[in-house]
Amino acid sequence: MSTPYACPNCRTNRSRFNIIQQVPQSVKLDPQTGDIVEEYTAENLSPFHMGYKGPDYRIQCAACGLIDEERTFAKFGEMK
């Protein structure tokens, strides 16, 4: 995260961002009530439950509110 960012939407913000940590919680829900029936860890996922493979962080522009992956903001930050 020691890379300059720039917002690809508003194109003016290069300094104000929110870093959002994504912490996945693997669960099995009751289809009728929506209650959590079972919680899984990375070690005990059932064969039918695929683990989370998304990014650990997402970035939000604090000027316009756009939320996207860190690499998108980093790529625009490389452009001068």
Rank of each mutant, 00 (worst) to 15 (best):
T33Q: 02
C61N: 07
R14D: 06
M50P: 01
H49R: 15
T12F: 03
V27F: 05
Q22P: 00
T33R: 04
P24M: 02
T3F: 06
K80G: 01
Q21Y: 09
C61A: 03
T72G: 00
N44C: 09
T72Y: 01
G54F: 09
Y5C: 03
P24W: 02
S26N: 08
M50W: 06
S15V: 08
D35F: 10
E69D: 14
I19Q: 06
Q32I: 12
A63T: 15
Q60R: 14
C7Y: 09
G34S: 05
Q22M: 03
I19T: 13
I36E: 09
I59H: 10
Q32T: 12
D56V: 05
E43N: 10
I67F: 09
T41L: 00
G54P: 11
H49S: 10
M50C: 06
F48K: 14
L66I: 14
F17R: 00
Q22R: 14
G77A: 07
E38C: 06
A62H: 08
M79C: 09
E43D: 11
P24L: 00
K75L: 15
R71K: 15
C64W: 11
Y57R: 15
C10K: 04
V37P: 03
G77Q: 07
G54V: 11
Y40I: 03
I36H: 07
C7P: 10
Q22C: 00
Y52F: 15
K80C: 08
E43V: 09
A6F: 00
K53L: 07
A42T: 08
F76K: 13
T33S: 13
I20G: 03
T3W: 05
T12R: 13
F48R: 09
Y5R: 04
I67W: 07
A42H: 12
M50Y: 02
V27D: 10
P4F: 03
E43S: 14
N44Q: 11
